[in-house]
Amino acid sequence: MADRITLTKNDRFSVALRSTFLQGSWNYERMQNGGWCFAMIPAIKRLYTTKEDQVAALKRHLEFFNTHPYVASPILGVTLALEEDKANGAEVEDSAIQGVKVGMMGPLAGVGDPVFWFTVRPILGALGASLAMAGNLLGPILFFVLWNVIRFGFMWYTQEFGYKVGMKITEDLSGGLLKKVTKGASILGMFILGALVERWVSINFVPVVSNVTLSEGAYIEWDKLPEGSEGIHQALSQYASGLSMEPTKVTTLQDNLNSLIPGFVPLLLTLLCMWLLKKNVSPIIIIIALFVVGILGHVIGLL
């Protein structure tokens, strides 16, 4: 076994870099197959020297493949380990390699979606967006840098992890670790979503519910203030001590709702959207409908 062909760290790193382009040729027939094969090329070149072996390997890796783009990395790692064994004469059937790929892509996609699309991205995105809306350039920079550090770190280390444990990973992933990561991400995600619904879905009902005339002394009496800066000073200190600016207290429908539960209407709206989506209403139709509701509601003076 002195002349065992092994993949160098460089080979593996170049596979990881190429897997960035996994979805580049995403197509309706075999989905990520082109990108997968593209990523495997450095390994195939290293492991197989004869033309026919290379052709067979290329064809083997142009089969149907589809998963979350980042969790493809551990699958690549395992596949690299299997290919290395095969190139060194071990009895690894094509169907075994295919089986590992297909067997891992489903459950792993089930981890990738909630973890990356529904937990990390909304959290980093909301963080960056709230900075950006305040005009802070750090928002997009923070989002971009953190995301890519997390992403590439994850891709490289899970690919190495997959390579090291080879076949063992499939056993483990069907067990505890997979479930834990998914559940942890769901908890994190649901919590943050609750917060986002409260903070960022905005509906404001403008109709006035009541006009209460305040008693004397409860509001600032503008005409009795002294002239100039002295007057401004007095007005501000009165305002700070809780006096109203106007002699009447206007309560809108929104104020009433807010004193009940802040964010109650956004919550109802979100639940309504969830229900419509479950009824297979296209999100695009819902989005258009909400714009129409916004315009009509504004015209009749409700929103």
Binding site: W200, V201, S202, N204, C273, P283, I287, L290, G294, G297
Partner: peptide, 13 residues
Amino acid sequence: IGGGMVVAVGYAM
């Protein structure tokens, strides 16, 4: 105003 509500669709998904 519609834009303020559209956010809910993404969250609902």
